[in-house]
Computed example of a mutant assay.
Amino acid sequence: MNNTKWEELRLGMIGLGTPSPRFRVRNLHSGYVSAWDGEWFHHFYGHHEEDEWVEISVTSAAQHEAVLRVLRSVHVPGVTTETGFKIFGYVPRGTHVEYL
């Protein structure tokens, strides 16, 4: 994904208000997975060239539906997980990716 898509994702999550869903990010090169965070305004701001994926955790069916609406409006590559969603910044070449 490019920085524009990451920014659209960030703004969409901010637009959900409180409580916003929590997220964590995996670095493409080091494999480091960040701690869970819920602060989209400052902590998710910036460049995401090295973000392999961001995982979004939801706490209720209503929050799941609200996040899914944002993801569909932004049209990002990702999957639904047991706890929410995983949005991909990078996938291995030749891998089929769904768009939410």
Rank of each mutant, 00 (worst) to 15 (best):
G38Y: 13
T59Q: 04
S57C: 13
D51N: 07
I87V: 15
R26I: 00
H75K: 15
A35C: 06
A35P: 01
H42I: 02
F44S: 01
H48R: 04
V33A: 11
V79L: 10
V25D: 04
V58G: 06
A66T: 04
E52Y: 01
V76M: 15
T59A: 10
Y32T: 01
D51Y: 10
V54L: 14
H47W: 03
I87N: 14
L71R: 07
P19W: 13
E55D: 13
W40F: 02
E50D: 09
H29T: 00
G84A: 06
D37R: 14
F85Q: 11
Y32M: 12
D51S: 10
S57I: 00
V70H: 08
R24S: 04
T81N: 10
L68F: 08
G84W: 12
V58A: 01
P77A: 07
H75L: 15
Y45W: 06
H48Q: 05
I56D: 02
G89F: 04
G46R: 11
V33H: 04
G46Y: 04
G17E: 11
G78A: 09
E49Q: 14
V74M: 07
S73F: 05
V33I: 07
R69Y: 05
E52Q: 15
Y32N: 13
R72S: 07
A62K: 14
R26C: 14
P19R: 15
R22M: 12
H75C: 07
W40T: 02
R72Y: 02
V79D: 14
R24Q: 15
V70W: 06
H42M: 06
G84S: 05
H29I: 03
S30N: 05
K86Y: 04
F88H: 08
E49V: 03
V33K: 12
W36G: 05
